[in-house]
Design a protein around this nucleic acid. Structure first.
Lengths: 197, 197
DNA sequence: GAACGTAACACTAACGGTTAGCTTTTCCTA
DNA sequence: TAGGAAAAGCTAACCGTTAGTGTTACGTTC
């Protein structure tokens, strides 16, 4: 789907630079603390110019959320690419559970702790969720049959993304996802009396 | 509850300064655009020092969201101060409808349009919602009887705040609140099989 | 394979939000 | 009325971010 056709030296060097920046940044952040490390520190340690850092990452916070880029894509596929006549909510449930498992795996705890302790990173994560929510709402609106109201579709999108946020903070993330999706299932069924205008 | 005991000249002057800053800022923002107006412009036009602006407002974005400060308080009261044995969700529904009405009243459209058009303000609003969500979750957890799981309480808090966000973007805000709360009611009832650990 | 177009990167300088450090003014209160 | 403290001012800087402008290295085309 997103297969690299033929990387080429230029593309490989670009990817390597990006990776070096991300690795260096994460290492410094974990060693000295996110706020104690400046962009200029990262650039110097990675041996690149400050402008190069911003050519690869839109903001300082984005250095921390490097691998979460395919969040939207995976949810889109779970919605649009599900088996014919497979109900919508269980498909979201399944994919969300996989995403939560992926985010709570071993090795991610120090990063997660740093995010939880840093207001700027929490804000950034929440703004990422806002983007994910809007993308998911569009995917749901286009994929639900028979159609539902725009408000119901956008509510489902928000509730689904909420499940991710809530699960990450819960003691038992997997169990939390299941519990929340029981609630979401009921909510989705409750609005079923109404059809899209 | 938060009655000023005896304002005193100092407190009055402080409030006046704060008000002058907020009014000046909003006027300049609406006249020239949020991003085109700097903090130094606001300070100069309000005839105060830059540091004084930040003594009253935590950030530039907070200048726009001045009156929304009692959001948390109103929801808290709706939860904790509701009539004995009044169910939780209808109380939230009622208060949220009032809040949405208050935010979509005449006269607020230019500000709302500015917020919608400015990414920094949208991000800030979402981070305010994060705070509101946490406060509401705590209030719900302490007020629900018989107790429910922590996850269910926090989910209800998030869904409630979602209703606010969704309603503001909907064509018919009041109708959207009603529709979403039908979903929330079902979600809350669905989790009722489980009790707090 | 030589020349051209361009993507990636570097460098400098600045802008704008934000804060620290310190002084001055103004009010409260003992 | 004197002393203390809150409020506001001033200066200077920090830090994330961007614009402007070259410079290098790769890809492509003849």
């Amino acid at each position: 789907m997103t297969a690299p056709p033929a990387p080429g030296r230029r593309a490989r060097k670009k990817a390597a630079t990006r990776q070096k920046i991300a690795d260096t940044a994460l290492r410094l952040f974990l060693a000295r603390g996110y706020e104690a490390v400046g962009i200029r520190d990262v650039a110097a340690e990675a041996d690149v110019a400050v402008t190069t850092v911003f050519a690869h990452f839109a903001a300082k916070e984005a250095l921390v959320f490097d691998q979460d880029a395919d969040f939207t894509r995976r949810l889109d596929e779970a919605v649009a690419g599900r088996a014919p006549h497979e109900p919508l909510v269980p498909a979201l449930h399944r994919e969300m559970k996989a995403l939560v498992l992926h985010c709570t795996r071993n090795g991610a705890e120090p990063v997660r702790r740093m995010i939880d302790e840093t207001p700027a990173l929490r804000r950034y994560e929440e703004s990422m969720r806002l983007r994910h929510t809007e993308a998911l709402a569009a995917a749901i609106t286009g994929a639900v049959d028979p159609p539902r109201t725009a408000t119901a579709c956008r509510a489902l999108a928000r509730f689904t993304i909420d499940a991710h946020a809530l699960a990450r903070e819960a003691d038992d993330p997997e169990g939390a996802v299941d519990e929340i999706f029981r609630m979401i299932e009921a909510a989705w069924a409750a609005g079923d009396g109404q059809r899209a205008d």
